[in-house]
Nucleic acid binder design. Sequence first.
RNA 1: GGUGGAGUCGCAUAGCGGCCGAGUGCGCACGCCUCGAAAGCGUGUGAGGGGCGACCCUCCGUGGGUUCAAAUCCCACCUCCACCGCCA
Length: 422
Amino acid sequence: MIDLRALRDDPDRLRASQRARGEDESVVDRLLDLDSRHRAALARFESLRAEQKSVGKSVSRASADEREALLARAKGLAADVKSAEAEAEALSAELAALLRTVPNIVEAEAPVGGVDDFVVVDQVGTPREFDFTPRDHLELGEMLGAIDTDRGAKVSGARFYFLTGVGAMLELGLLNLAMQRAAANGFTPVIPPVLVKPETMEGTGFLGEHSAEVYHLPADDLYLVGTSEVPLAGYHANEILPADMLPTRYVGWSSCFRREAGSYGKDTRGIIRVHQFNKVEMFVYAHPDQAHEEHLRLLGWEREMLDLLEVPYRVVDIATGDLGTSAARKYDCEAWVPSQGCYRELTSTSNCTDFQSRRLNIRYRDADGKPRFAATLNGTLATTRWIVAILENHQREDGSVVVPEALRPFVGRDVLEPVTKK
RNA sequence: GGUGGAGUCGCAUAGCGGCCGAGUGCGCACGCCUCGAAAGCGUGUGAGGGGCGACCCUCCGUGGGUUCAAAUCCCACCUCCACCGCCA
């Protein structure tokens, strides 16, 4: 949620942001209009209410003969107050509803444009030259006895899979390495709930344009999270954090659930795009003035992980039109996938500034003792999808896969050997 | 799932439907006292919102209701505690 008072002072800032996102600019004037009507209604209600209170008080002190008249007046006022309050509340609800549809204001430095207008910030490593035809991750996974999508489909349906044997070990190793690195960097490890209440899901901004992506359990009115960003953002909801607590860094490990609605026919093979996967996610509560620097630090930690896994990747500055609702700026790291001959997203780090904090009411006490909204940031340290990049980039002609050095202690072996020839 | 109890301004507690429209203790901050400290004394001490301002409004788990007036009465829900049952 954006800051209404800041909007009053500088409406052009939101206009520019909406333009950059390719979103409706007229919302600015509708907001300003609703806001002033709301404040007028509120003033009306408040003065009537003040009068009602003072008249009400005088009722008890009044003599018997004054009483009748006062009571009549008080009754009249009660009715007026009720309708004035209803009017103010209606406008307030309308304003809040409109405000909820407005995405975060983008960082001025973010590249402007759509999905394809990202800027490549850096490129690390070069795609490997194969002197044989590289296999894709699913073929490798099946040879290694690591990935079983047939049985995944049998048991749970399309976009589900089993990780078995070295596949399971590889995933655990990857996630453990990520947790271990994050802990070493000062993050507090967290295993959060993966079912959350509506207000938590709403607060993180996932029930807007992405609501079709989210699993909902109607019997309990709970949502399955698509990332541990959701419970980690809710963790400090409705709290005022002491100033010296910032930045507070958490690293969450959770299963993630996504409906992948509307992606029929896209990435149907293997485990690139699935309904359930595991993810290690960094989540930081920061001082708004330090959010940008913290964002770059998160990117740095993501790159450290990718470096450890020895896969070629590039860093991409996402364009304004492709930013999520809550993000003011977003960097993705994309790893080279040999079988596809292109880079695919492995990490994503967003600076949500105080957008989520406003919705979730997450504050900190500033130096002057006043509560202010904190900034929130998130970034990926490992996901199931990384297995794709690891298998494909480190494969050998016979279908075996060399385990990256850093992963070996966690996986327990140097090379994954095929269990079946194909 | 059942029965009983409880949810008040950081913590702990008080609170007859209006006259305290939230009191007291602790904690905290500042001041006095002191060579310095402790103790003692004094003052202050929540959040959100509106108004140029004086000020005003909202919030006593949440949401409804009764009333001129509700922390206080009624209804529903949520959470916590205790015990019982069921499952592991």
